[in-house]
């Protein structure tokens, strides 16, 4: 049984509206995308949706009480809230440099969480 789903691509600000045909859990057809990134996004979105995570962790001895952090690459979408909850319990000590690894291999997902600014 094939089904169709309408989704907006989020790869760029154009936000193409795509009609995606899915058969047996696999994307068999994508219509409405203007570039190949749309088709790839549709495929990922149907089989294993992924998102970046940006949040903050506590920092001690810094000029601010919070340090903004970002996932080095995308995470499985359904794990994003768990990762955010985990990071709410993390505290680091200043100074921190942009790009420093704050949490290695978060929740065993193979993705590092890194600092997105300097904190003196």
């Amino acid at each position: 049984m094939s089904e169709t789903r309408v989704m907006n691509c989020i790869m760029c600000p154009m936000g193409c509206e795509m009609t995606v045909t899915i058969d047996d859990g696999k994307v068999v057809d994508v219509k409405g995308n203007t570039c190949p990134r749309g088709a790839k996004y549709a495929h990922d979105e149907v089989t294993a949706p992924k998102r970046m995570l940006t949040t903050t962790v506590r920092v001690e001895g810094g000029m601010l009480p919070l340090l903004p952090v970002v996932s080095e690459t995308v995470l499985p979408k359904e794990k994003v809230l768990d990762c955010a909850a985990y990071l709410r319990g993390v505290t680091v000590k200043a100074p921190v440099k942009t790009g420093d690894v704050i949490v290695e291999d978060i929740l065993g997902l193979g993705v590092n969480i890194i600092a997105s600014r300097d904190m003196l």
Binding site: C12, T54, P68, V70, S116, R117
Partner: peptide, 25 residues
């Protein structure tokens, strides 16, 4: 930008996806 900690900045100007603080930096 220092408070806009999400990503999506800089794709045109720096040709890579940065966070707000990253772009400010």
């Amino acid at each position: 930008l220092q408070q806009c900690i999400h990503n999506g900045f800089g794709l045109h100007h720096f040709k890579e996806e940065l966070t707000g603080p990253g772009y400010a930096h």
